[in-house]
Design a binder for these strands. Structure first.
Length: 310
DNA sequence: CATATTTCCTGCCTGC
DNA sequence: TGCAGGCAGGAAATAT
């Protein structure tokens, strides 16, 4: 469930400890953590050992750590936390985490030796050594680095709503030509990245928009209001350290965030809507759920063409 | 081309 | 107490 705020907390925690650090040892404990790496575990270890991390960069829910040197535009370690992935900073003597999959020992010129531990209960997350490619729009690849490069595995992902190079007008135009439910579009990482089920439900609640509203049925003003609410909820969650329900999402020190206390709709079915007091409901949505207030978030009436009935 | 469904995985929770 | 089944869900692959 790490979405943009949670991944940004991890990025910001990792950056000061890892930027400028050199990899001394790589241990792959479970090759399923490398499903997106083109090559063996040995290849991953060999490509990484001895390299120096230049930065920690994030776009949407993707993280990448550019490596110094190399050919062409260079390479990076690209990572996605999936459902339950964690990147933890530990001392080199630290015992194994419960679901530890990869351990990268680095030597930092000021902080000394550290272990970067990738732990992942459900193994939807993964790490890979990946090529860096130029960004399509020439702007910086993401948060945390000024260079106009992006990991190739994240290059097809749209910019996220907190990215300075995100284009609001293009987002509005995309919504206007999509017939599918607006919530689906919010979750489509090729349209806007960083939003998952929690923040989609929260933003739609704040904007008083029913998740099944066809995207194209929103007015331009409605679309921009939704985008503004997306940004507000992402920023608030980031300021509170992200959303943690159990031990699934934690920062690099293993600590939970506080935003779960601020949720208005997600997971609150049966509880009163904080705005109107009527119960929040849960609706089936593909293989997951939508949480909403049916009173505040009215399904927009679809204007049907006139039909002549004999 | 656009949209819908399936797949990957483990741990917790419910109901029998 | 055990165990089956449901559920959680991001994104790529596959199907319609």
């Amino acid at each position: 469930m790490p979405e943009l705020p949670e991944v940004e907390v991890v990025r910001a925690g990792l950056a000061p400890a890892v930027a400028g650090a050199t990899v001394s040892v790589v241990e792959v404990l479970d090759p399923r953590a490398l499903t997106r790496h083109r090559g063996s575990s040995d290849d991953f270890e060999a490509r990484l050992t001895g390299r120096t991390f230049r930065a920690v960069v994030r776009r949407g829910k993707f993280l990448w750590l550019p490596l110094d040197g190399g050919s062409g535009e260079g390479e990076a370690v690209v990572g996605h936390l999936g459902m339950s992935g964690q990147l933890l900073l530990r001392g080199i003597e630290a015992p194994r985490e419960r679901h530890e999959r990869v351990r990268i020992v680095v030597e930092h010129p000021r902080h000394g030796e550290l272990a970067v531990v990738f732990a992942d209960q459900r193994t939807f997350g993964s790490l890979a050594v990946d090529a860096l490619v130029a960004t399509a729009d020439g702007a910086a690849g993401g948060w945390g680095d000024d260079t106009a490069l992006v990991a190739s595995q994240a290059a097809h992902i749209a910019r996220d709503p907190l990215d300075a190079a995100f284009v609001d007008a293009a987002f509005g135009q995309t919504l206007a030509r999509k017939a599918v439910a607006v919530k689906r579009v919010l979750l489509d990482q090729t349209v806007v990245s960083g939003i998952g089920n929690i923040y989609a439900d929260e933003a739609l609640w704040a904007a008083r928009i029913h998740p099944e509203t066809p995207a194209s049925a929103l007015s331009r003003r409605g679309a921009m209001r939704l985008l503004a609410e997306v940004r507000t909820v992402l920023r608030k969650a980031l300021a509170e350290g992200g959303t943690s329900f159990d031990a699934q999402y934690v920062n690099v020190n293993g600590q939970a965030g506080y935003f779960a206390h601020s949720l208005n709709a997600y997971g609150r079915h049966g509880s009163p809507c904080p705005r109107c007091g009527r119960p929040i409901v849960r609706l089936a949505f593909t293989n997951r759920s939508s949480h909403l207030c049916p009173a505040c978030q009215r399904r927009k009436a679809i204007r049907l063409p006139a039909v002549i009935v004999k």
